[in-house]
């Protein structure tokens, strides 16, 4: 299937969640349905939204993020939005408190990453990604087992401004990790799912503007279909089409798309000749 431009310039929203129990309220909130493709990870899909259940830990999170990208790559021509959502321990926050992550530190490598500080009414938090469950709550931060790996992979596929992490506090020094049960996870994640939808909408605003700016005029498809372009020529064609749009010369581009040319080189030459005459 070829890449199809989405009429509203939206990006797909890709959600990475560690556990099926965490995913359930999100699946309901977003109205997602399972995708039974026999793939390596459990996956759900709805209108413009994908969710993958990664399993716990950094390796699983990294693999599932890459997997989700690979299997949804052709669904849209735009870079997807990525959100990692799930439960986390926290030294000072109350149970059930949803927090937006402003800094991620991988405890193993000591590397830190910084999501775009998107406006939010939620309390913000540092997230420390650990290899084994944190029971000491040694720093005033949230603790999870996937965040840093998710970030490292997701930011390979989209600009970092399209990647966020949202966590809900499931344990703290007064309610240790052993007190977590299915029922509590469901309640916490229901609350997170509502905030997740708001965050996704906020990110979608940024993404849509970005996507619109990088979209191509309709004439591009017509021209691209008529000739066989080399990789370099394809890049030149895309940029030239964007210039026609930027210069408000789309009508000329439409006209060019209907003219007779023998080769891809000739049509590119005509486009460039017309752009040469353009002055802002």
């Amino acid at each position: 299937m070829g890449k199809v431009a989405m009429a509203n310039f939206s990006s797909s929203i890709n959600l990475v969640v560690a556990h099926g129990l965490e995913a359930k309220p999100i699946i309901e909130q977003f109205g997602l349905a399972p995708v039974n493709d026999g793939g390596a990870f459990r996956r759900y899909q709805g209108l413009g939204v994908n969710l993958v259940v990664s399993g716990m830990g950094k390796v699983n999170a990294a693999a599932a993020t890459a997997y989700l990208y690979a299997v949804t790559l052709n669904d849209s021509m735009y870079d997807p939005i990525w959100i990692n959502a799930g439960i986390a321990g926290h030294k000072t926050f109350e149970l059930g408190c949803t927090t937006i992550v402003r800094k991620i530190t991988d405890q193993g490598t000591r590397s830190s990453y910084y999501p775009l500080p998107i406006p939010s009414s939620l309390p913000s938090s540092v997230l420390i990604t650990v290899d084994v469950p944190e029971e000491e709550y040694s720093l005033d931060a949230a603790f999870d087992m996937e965040g840093s790996a998710f970030w490292s992979i997701a930011t390979k596929f989209s600009p970092i401004e399209f990647v966020q992490l949202l966590k809900v506090v499931s344990d703290n020094p007064n309610h240790c990790i052993k007190t977590i049960n299915k029922g509590k996870i469901g309640i916490y994640m229901e609350s997170l799912a509502v905030q997740l939808q708001l965050l996704a909408a906020e990110m979608q605003k940024l993404a849509s503007q970005h996507n619109w700016a990088h979209s191509l005029p309709e004439a591009y498809e017509k021209i691209a279909e008529r000739f066989s372009f080399t990789v370099t020529q394809s890049r030149q064609l895309r940029r030239a089409c964007q210039k026609f749009r930027a210069a408000e010369l789309e009508q000329q581009l439409e006209e060019i798309s209907t003219l007779k040319f023998q080769t891809s080189k000739q049509i590119l030459a005509e486009m460039n000749a017309r752009l040469e005459r353009f002055a802002v």
Binding site: A213, F244, A246, A247, F278
Partner: peptide
């Protein structure tokens, strides 16, 4: 900058 602002006329000028 041209990559950042493909929709800006200034960067469409020769």
């Amino acid at each position: 900058i041209s990559k950042l602002y493909p929709d800006e006329a200034l960067y469409a000028q020769a």
